[in-house]
């Protein structure tokens, strides 16, 4: 754990230095840029609230990817599951009428179910035909994307809008904000705690992690590997679906073309950089959200395009992941030398 924190902090620092070098080469002022980045993401209350709200889809898709990767299934379908979850929440929000708290609950259940159904398709194809979920979920992403685009272009199209989007969902389904803080953040926190409990305190989480590390060992030890596979796929799909649902209920309130564009892929990246740990995913989710939120302000103050953050994120991932491996090698070397000296 301490090693993780060390390599993470060192890796992010090195990545920021590399980012500064890139900026210097391009003729920008790195100090001013990073200053603007911090100011517009963390140092004012509204900015901090916006950063937390942006972290919701990042952390949730990150958790989805983390749990999947840690438990074995290579579920890369978060983008599609997010879109399906958002569509589920939108459909309930458009066509069901109920009082506010119940309505929100129904929409959230709909987004969980829709996400789980979409990953369930991949899980079913794997169980019945042993089709590799890695490519199946990827292809399902594209299909979900075009399917949602069709829904919002023809059957659900808002005639008053210029680009494909649905009508706004019923106001009863809008998540309220408490003191400027979007309540979807609270749902995200609850989901994070739930995931942490399942993965580090529950029996099923233990079984899943064992399966992820050594499926044969888990099977011989008496875990129902196949049933667990389906459960993990459904849970991770539901998490990604929840991310999409919360983007509707707490964000745009309608399904807009290009919704959730890159959040889910960022979530996968966050899971990778966090080494599939729950707390790590949460922290890196906040970091990436702060970077993305600050990017908008950075673009206002300095001439650096906000797309620079996309590059910086990828650099952070590569450096931290590579750093973790190399740091382990160095630490092992030092530990061995120390033990040798003690033995002499």
């Amino acid at each position: 754990m301490r090693k993780q924190v060390m390599s993470g902090v060192a890796g992010v620092f090195v990545a920021l230095v590399i980012g500064a070098v890139i900026m210097l080469v391009q003729g920008f002022n790195p100090v001013q840029t990073y200053g603007a980045l911090l100011q517009y993401s963390l140092f004012t209350v509204p900015a901090l609230a916006a950063t937390l709200a942006r972290a919701v889809p990042l952390v949730l898709t990150g958790l989805s990817a983390s749990i999947a990767f840690a438990s074995g299934p290579v579920n890369l379908g978060q983008p599609g599951q997010l879109i399906m979850g958002a569509m589920g929440a939108t459909l309930v929000g458009l066509f069901v009428h109920a009082p506010a708290p119940l309505m929100i609950l129904l929409c959230i259940v709909a987004s969980l179910t829709a996400g789980a159904l979409w990953s369930g398709v991949a899980a079913m194809l794997r169980r019945l035909f042993s089709m590799d979920e890695f490519i199946v979920t990827l292809m399902l992403n594209f299909i979900a994307d075009y399917f949602a685009l069709w829904l919002i272009t023809y059957p659900l199209f808002d005639p008053a809008a210029l680009s494909p989007m649905t009508l706004p969902v019923s106001t009863a389904a809008w998540l309220p904000s408490i003191g400027g803080l979007n309540t979807s953040v609270l749902v995200m926190l609850m989901a994070t705690v739930f995931c942490w409990l399942v993965m580090s305190r529950g029996r099923s989480g233990y079984e899943w992690r064992m399966t992820g590390q050594n499926a044969l060992f888990a099977r011989i030890g008496g875990c129902k590997v196949d049933a667990n596979y389906v459960r993990v796929m459904l849970l991770t799909g539901a998490l990604a679906g929840l991310a999409g649902g919360l983007m509707i209920l707490g964000g745009s309130h309608r399904f807009v073309k290009g919704l959730g564009a890159s959040y889910a892929w960022d979530g996968i990246m966050i899971a990778v950089v966090a080494g599939n740990g729950i707390s790590g995913t949460f922290l890196y989710g906040l970091l990436f959200s702060a970077l993305q939120q600050g990017a908008l302000g950075m673009e206002l103050i300095t001439a650096v395009p906000s797309e620079f953050i996309d590059v910086l994120q990828a650099v952070i991932v590569l450096i931290v992941v590579a750093g973790r491996v190399s740091l382990n090698l160095v630490l092992d070397y030092l530990a061995t030398r120390r033990r040798l000296r003690e033995a002499q």
């Binding site: 892929w265 996968i268 996309d310």
Partner: peptide
């Protein structure tokens, strides 16, 4: 994965 996202960014 990181390289693919790096390319997009």
């Amino acid at each position: 994965i990181a390289l693919n996202l790096f390319a997009v960014g």
